[in-house]
Design a binder for these strands. Sequence first.
DNA 1: ACCTGAACACCGTTCAAGT
DNA 2: ACCTGAACACCGTTCAAGT
Lengths: 237, 237
Amino acid sequence: MPAKSTAKTAKSRRPRDSLSRETILAAAETIAERDGLNGLTFQAIGDELNAHPTSMYRHFRDKDDLLLELIDNLRARSYGGTVLATNDWRNDLRAISKQVHEHYLRYPEFAQQMAMRTTRRPVEFANVEFVLDAMRRAGVSDADAVRYQRAFGNLVRSMASIEAAFLALEPAVRRNDELAYQIEYRQLDPEQFPNIARVADPMPGIGDPTAFDTALELLLDAIELRVARASTSQVDH
Amino acid sequence: MPAKSTAKTAKSRRPRDSLSRETILAAAETIAERDGLNGLTFQAIGDELNAHPTSMYRHFRDKDDLLLELIDNLRARSYGGTVLATNDWRNDLRAISKQVHEHYLRYPEFAQQMAMRTTRRPVEFANVEFVLDAMRRAGVSDADAVRYQRAFGNLVRSMASIEAAFLALEPAVRRNDELAYQIEYRQLDPEQFPNIARVADPMPGIGDPTAFDTALELLLDAIELRVARASTSQVDH
DNA sequence: ACCTGAACACCGTTCAAGT
DNA sequence: ACCTGAACACCGTTCAAGT
């Protein structure tokens, strides 16, 4: 029983020049939205476009080439309006963090690639500029601003990436991991693990949705503190 | 020309019961150390053990089963001696972060799996207990300790994971990404990106080795600050 | 010049067959 | 009961052949 032949007459050859990076990326975006990274194969793109799987090689060097281009398209789609600066640098950094966080949760299977690559494209430039400007308005020196921007950016992208990857685990696997904090951690010997025993009723797991914000607020607290200290010691001189 | 037949007489059948989870994991560890995650296939394990690739299925449910078991073995190997608590909670948290960080850089291709899974095994229990104890010694309340421990742990594992993944990129790709901060970011229009223009000489990239420590120290600063504030306000009452 | 078809070298996984 | 061999359903990628 040839299951393939049911769907289409399908012998139609695609018209000449009907394929391009744009049409292929649009199909890839559809598949990414619907089936995630694992569903994104040349076969699937071919099906979507009614084209041969290997025809993509005329338009992309290889799959990585396509993937990076796609990642930037997804980002441009999510970041519809750029975040606008207010007169509150903490709120501004919170707002852009939230935007990145949500974007990663929306495309969890692409999160690691998004977190570790430099796309050197408009959305990225704008975000870096935005964060540096917020640092300046907070009163951070240029030398510190560039260090804090890197630490802040890496923290936000890394933590969002791992959280997204965790949420994208197979449901059964994820459920088991979450249950560890209600079962295994509660059954530990209180003599050997007194601190765990004191707080395990239950403990938050790796996918705890508040961990991101907790880390972020601690970071912002510390930047504010250091700025305050620097201006105090300057007054002292 | 049958390239396969050169290496071995090789028709030898493995003696009965000569395979076990332990022998297979030992071979997998060798391959992980030598060829990384991509080199870790059942074919490679079979070659290493002079056994048939499919024989592994008698001892492991599937490849994920093998991978998780392997990750715990690698961790046990890296964490030779447990970190010992001193009377300085900040140094203790630094020490355990460094241990985790180095472990991830040692096995970069396994980093994401290590960062997002809960193994509920001895090394993990010991680390959680250690961090919670340091929080207690810092003067953090139980309610905050459990939140800070989760934020701290997620931050350390996430940031180490992304940094490791970046360092494991193909050298040419990684080099290109690094050069972006010496080339593209420096060529941006200073009118449009004034803050980038001020600090781009050059900027640190995603793989900047100090970003991890910068974020960590900011987090520790904030915890110390909050403890100080809480005790002050308590005195006020 | 662009799209297609066949082929290659890999994967993980299943299952009947050997010992 | 444990190991092997053949087979299946996938991948990405190359390259000669069609149009």
